[in-house]
């Protein structure tokens, strides 16, 4: 067993895993906010379209979606790099879960806050931006933290569409070097440490956004 060979290869893979996690998280975040707010829109057609998207992506498997983006889209002339296909697939998958987080958090802002905004003559968009959304943010962070760690773990699926992430690096090492137990144990430990680090990061973020609902009335 040769750690000087294993560790650099795994570290390189871990960087790709981190990159994929952050890119997918960025896509998922944008999708979550946009779709979550559209789900609350006044326009039925928009609401319906958002609901269909959420049900499709929550109702099917992440791996199936990933294969769809990787194998099926090229048939229609949409040729994405493996990383792009993976990031979009995971981003849309986690965006569907995240949009429900956003929706629930916005719905949980007390009614009195909406009423105060009306009484101060805020137009709906401005009320959302200045009053409602900032308060909902505090409620979104803990579930977003959980989703981020789930997303980190889900990037291991990218190894199945030829992306050289941590899982892929582990598999290649096993094929070339043997040492199955040691290498897969190391891979697990790498993921675990990354998950712990992301968890800490999110906790720090939560501390910086004050729980905004205290004293807000109903």
């Amino acid at each position: 067993m040769n750690l000087t060979v294993f560790l650099p290869a795994l570290l390189k893979g871990a960087l790709v895993t981190l990159e994929a996690t952050l890119l997918s998280a960025a896509v998922a975040l944008v999708v979550s906010v946009v779709v979550g707010l559209v789900r609350l829109s006044r326009f039925r057609l928009l609401r319906g379209a958002a609901l269909v998207y959420v049900e499709i992506f929550r109702g099917t498997s992440a791996l199936v979606q990933l294969f769809y983006f990787f194998f099926v889209l090229p048939i229609f002339g949409i040729d994405l790099s493996p990383m792009a296909a993976g990031v979009i697939a995971l981003g849309l998958n986690f965006g569907s879960y995240g949009s429900e987080v956003v929706r629930a958090a916005v719905l949980n802002v007390p009614r009195g806050q909406h009423e105060a905004a009306v009484a101060l003559n805020y137009p709906p968009g401005l009320a959302m931006r200045r009053i409602i959304f900032p308060q909902a943010l505090a409620a979104m962070l803990p579930p977003f933290g959980n989703l981020l760690i789930d997303l980190l773990k889900a990037t291991s699926l990218l190894s199945l569409i030829t992306i050289g992430d941590l899982t892929f690096a582990g598999k290649s090492l096993v094929q070339s070097q043997g040492h199955v137990t040691a290498i897969y144990t190391l891979v697990l430990v790498f993921y675990f440490v990354m998950a712990l680090m992301l968890g800490r990061l999110m906790q720090a973020a939560e501390r910086r956004v004050p729980g905004a609902t205290a004293g807000g009335g109903r």
């Binding site: 199955v180 137990t181 897969y184 697990l188 675990f192 998950a195 712990l196």
Partner: peptide, 21 residues
């Protein structure tokens, strides 16, 4: 917390390739 913090995919590999050893 270890099982929750690591991907199911690697856990499956681990069981599939390591247990027989």
């Amino acid at each position: 917390s270890f099982v929750r913090g690591t991907p199911l995919l690697i856990q499956l590999y681990f069981l599939y390739y390591v247990l027989p050893l």
